[in-house]
Amino acid sequence: MFKVTEAPLDPQPIVQGVLKESHGAVVTFLGVVRGWSGGRRVLYMEYEAYKEMAEKKLVEIGQEIRQRWQVEDVALYHRVGRLEVGVTSLVVVVAAPHRGEAFAACHYAVDRLKEIVPIWKKEVFEDGGVWVEGEPMLEEK
């Protein structure tokens, strides 16, 4: 349920993998490669991961969600490698009895992913590529 993979991401089997009879709400978030950045045409993106650590951090996000919302069923899949515009890079699925916690937990997962999961992306333009860097998390232990 927590994976970094080079394979294409299909949300439907991931949803089926977390769904239970006790659930009334499933929130799915897809991150896709955008064709524009700062007004410039993006040709494609390159995603790179520190895979062992990234998968560990994805599991941790699942644990954090369980503690905050008592939401059991979370899936986080991140694709890496060269991804073309329009392709899905991220799938987050949260299934819960009611929509409130499912929306909140899904939002939290995406925000948290950008803080602690060691995955980087390079936007490649016609005239070269640029690594996109977020803010460093200096308060990390």
Partner: peptide, 13 residues
Amino acid sequence: VAIIPPVSGGEGV
């Protein structure tokens, strides 16, 4: 030991 630049995974910033 890994050198970890600020992360930027997920969808477009």
